[in-house]
């Protein structure tokens, strides 16, 4: 029922698009059949793979940087109430700046390339990771902490067996958010600069009037986004099997 109704909605939307486009209601927008043909073309003749690699590279490297640096900044801020209170206003200010305002700056410094899109995506995503890591580190249960203290558990074991597992659910959410933001900003930056990848292909095909290919790349962006999101959801479920929101309780 669930799967079937989801599929039904998709079919309905595609059907409406097909009818509207075929009867000329959508102006220059091609029908879904034409777009599907263009997607198939990009996959089969191999011209889509290069841009895919560029977008994935920007996404992956910026995500990696955002996660590593986000944890390094967030953890110390989260474990102490003093450092958290000191830095909260600064963090709130920084994370509300839209990453794309730095396009002119990074293009000036690093040119129109991978380096620029990585920097922009990193700046957009790192705050999600910082904030989630802070929340995670602050969520330490006092009873659990007393338990570790009363047994005199060693510092390293306290980090790996108490602090990290406590923060892990929050950090996993942070990684999933950061992954979505990194893709979003990577593609946006590739359009605005333009700087390779799916983004530049969308601009190029729009300028040359190849609308089916332009829409094909837009569809591919959506597919990529969904694939990334479901991968991270699966990853979260498997790492956090013990967490109340993922438990399969037997008793």
């Amino acid at each position: 029922m669930n799967r079937l109704s989801q599929l039904g909605v998709i079919v309905l939307v595609l059907g409406a698009w097909q009818v509207a486009a075929a009867t000329g209601q959508l102006g220059a927008v091609p029908t879904p059949l034409v777009v599907a043909g263009a997607v198939l073309g990009l996959v089969l003749d191999g011209s889509g793979w290069g841009p895919l690699a560029e977008t994935l590279a920007s996404w992956f490297i910026s995500l990696l940087l955002a996660v590593v640096i986000g944890v390094i900044i967030g953890f110390p801020l989260g474990v102490s109430r003093v450092t958290y209170r000191m830095s909260v206003v600064t963090l709130d200010f920084l994370r509300t700046i839209p990453a794309l305002v730095f396009v002119p700056l990074v293009v000036l410094l690093y040119g129109a390339g991978l380096q620029s899109t990585i920097l922009l995506a990193f700046f957009g995503a790192v705050w999600a990771m910082v904030m989630q890591t802070i929340y995670g580190a602050r969520d330490l249960d006092p009873v659990a902490r007393d338990t570790f203290r009363s047994f005199g558990v060693r510092r390293w074991d306290t980090v790996t067996r108490l602090l990290l597992p406590t923060a892990l659910p929050y950090m996993a959410t942070g990684v999933r958010l950061a992954a979505a933001i990194c893709l979003l900003i990577s593609i946006s930056a590739q359009i605005v600069i333009p700087a390779g990848g799916f983004g530049e292909q969308i601009v190029v095909h729009q300028l040359s009037g190849a609308l089916p290919e332009m829409f094909a790349y837009i569809v591919l962006c959506g597919v990529l986004g969904m694939a990334i999101d479901s991968t991270f959801r699966w990853f979260e479920r498997s790492v956090l099997a013990w967490h109340p929101s993922h438990r399969k309780v037997s008793s």
């Binding site: 249960d141 009873v143 659990a144 007393d146 338990t147 597992p165 892990l168 013990w242 109340p244």
Partner: peptide, 11 residues
Amino acid sequence: FQDYSRSLMPW
């Protein structure tokens, strides 16, 4: 501790 559910680590 009284609160065993918080004193045992769920992970």
